[in-house]
Nucleic acid binder design. Structure first.
Length: 312
DNA sequence: TCTATTTGACCCCT
DNA sequence: AGGGGTCAAATAGA
């Protein structure tokens, strides 16, 4: 599993790894977490047995080989981490449903040539075919080169305890152009322990922050991991110009917990369908000035998520 | 006002 | 001619 080895690399580069006595311990924790992740991934696969995903490499001449198309069939629409813009819809001969055409949002500002087509090809059970047509060349944090996530900076993680890596994924929309979209800090506070993990994420696209998607890996103490499933966390988002708390633990309406039975409309929230209840809950919240959505998923779900859109 | 989606027009290929 | 992919004007929404 390619992304798994990248996490080991991330662990080695982690500030915690500088303490030699704890680095093997840390590695053990990571490997244990990854094994658990694999188990959950298997469960996920079972749950999604209608979501059979296969890769279909079209026969093409060798000159076109680097533009191989990827064909995926899934039981639901899924968020693949890229910013897409719909530019067409066509009725297809002998097809029940129209074909939808998307191109990368960064086609013009970065010259990214990636496109995809999405078409519902079955009603009951629902089945969607997604065909990717070119590699992304745009500078998104969450693009196909997911082997470089270890550059995410993590701080304030004491070395002597057990930690679980948690992937936080959020989309941020800055309606206010005064906000500096280049750096966002996420602080997660466990109110029981007050342990804090901070991740700084660089948004490389300052002109189109609305399309930016941020990902942070934070470490939470194992004994606090249960809290994460039952109780909202205090989170803060800070930019250069202001600090804003966008999830308030005292206001349950500011944080919505999704489970696998929840019907979700946007592609972003389709991730909920990948989350078995109890092991990978997905939270979402909206704050008025930042309009920030946040998901939490287990490493297993994250790996699954990563593997879906991967191109050769 | 700015960005995303919708939808008929247009264009290329077979 | 017509099927499928893209364009772009109109429209929607934030």
């Amino acid at each position: 599993m390619g992304s798994s080895s990248s996490w080991v690399a991330a662990a080695a580069n982690h500030p915690m790894g500088s303490s030699s006595s704890s680095s093997s311990e840390w590695e053990k924790v990571m490997i244990g977490e990854l094994n658990r992740g694999r188990e959950v991934a298997d469960q996920l696969r079972l749950m999604l047995r209608h979501t059979h995903t296969h890769t279909d490499v079209l026969p093409a001449d060798h000159a076109q080989e680097k533009f191989r198309n990827i064909n995926k069939e899934t039981g639901s629409l899924f968020e693949d981490g890229h910013a897409w813009r719909k530019y067409g819809q066509k009725v297809i001969l002998n097809a029940k449903h129209p074909r939808n055409y998307f191109r990368c949002t960064h086609k013009f500002d970065q010259g990214c040539q990636a496109t995809k087509q999405v078409q519902k090809i079955e009603d009951d059970p629902p089945l969607f075919r997604t065909t990717y047509h070119a590699q992304h060349t745009c500078k998104n944090l969450f693009n196909s080169s997911h082997h470089h996530h270890h550059h995410i900076i993590m701080q304030d993680a004491p070395a002597e305890d057990h930690y679980s890596p948690i992937m936080w994924s959020f989309a941020a929309t800055h309606h206010d152009s005064d906000h500096d979209p280049k750096t966002t800090s996420v602080v997660i506070n466990n109110d029981s322990s007050c342990s804090t993990a901070t991740a700084d994420i660089s948004n490389t696209n300052s002109t189109n922050a609305a399309a930016g998607r941020h990902h942070a890996v934070v470490l939470l103490k194992q004994e606090n991991k249960e809290l994460l499933h039952h109780q909202p966390q205090m989170m803060k988002s800070s930019s250069s110009s202001s600090d804003a708390t966008f999830v308030c633990p005292d206001d349950p309406t500011s944080l919505t917990k999704f489970d696998s039975s929840t019907t979700m409309s946007s592609g972003h929230h389709e991730l909920g369908a990948f989350s078995p209840a109890g092991s990978s809950d997905v939270y979402s919240s909206t704050e008025s000035t930042h309009s920030m959505e946040m998901d939490m998923m287990s490493m297993a779900a994250f790996d699954d998520f990563l593997d879906l859109p991967t191109l050769p």
